[in-house]
Amino acid sequence: MKVLVCISNVPDTTTKVKFTDDFEKLDTSNIQWVINPWDELSLTRALELKDDASTGVKSVTVAHVGLAGAEPTIRKALAIGADDAIRINAEPHDAYYVAAQLAEVVKAESFDIVLCGIESSDHNGSTVGGMLSEFLGYPSVSAVSGLKIENNTLVINREIDGGKETVTVPAPVVAIVQKGIAKEPRIAAMRGIMMARTKPVKVVEPVAVDALTGIISFEMPEPRAACKFVDAEDPKQLIGLLQNEAKVL
């Protein structure tokens, strides 16, 4: 079995986001770029599956749609342990565009298991994985918090609103991954970082696809009113404020 982990390149999660003066773009000065947290967890789980010979997972590839500036993020994935990488050399215009590019890669190299994160922490689309599955005509399972392989069949834990389900789906499949899929992201060791330099990154040119959406501008949330402090000895006062001022009790 061949696993593909789709990774998006996002600002470090502690970034205080700022925009350009016209609020049209993210101000990218001083931003650390990282692998989207869920993609890091997907990659970790994929490598765990590969480590276990009984799963039949033979290789773990990462794919990214983006320009050359994202290479450090791709190298990091290789340093963590991916065998090779594919970069589709294009600006990721929107989710539809990205998913259409990824679909070409999956078809060309016939991956059996495709892992996507449940959302990228920048645009919060939660869309690429589902779109990719529909482009491919593969089944998809979303909000995946556990993934095992038994005789070519995936045994997946998914979260439904109000509970959990264990489901089985035959490969090929797109799993859209959330928390729980792996405990902690695997960290690149020195040896991995050395090896990553020589691992192959295949650069492919994009196919022609129209983006369906475009961001016009950003907006910061309205600043919140300053916090009102209540005496620790008198929580009754707090209850009063919640009841009469905020009117939420």
């Binding site: 929107d94 989710a95 539809y96 998913a99 449940i118 959302e119 919060n124 689309g125 939660s126 869309t127 690429v128 994985g129 589902g130 779109m131 599955s133 529909e134 482009f135 998809s140 399972v141 979303s142 909000a143 998914r158 979260e159 439904i160 609103d161 859209i176 369906l212 959406t213």
Partner: peptide, 24 residues
Amino acid sequence: ANNNVGKALAPRLSVRLKAGIGAG
């Protein structure tokens, strides 16, 4: 809805209908 089920279905619909998504 922008819940687990909505997030699972909306993108598949998007491709079927060639319809752009506003998520969240």
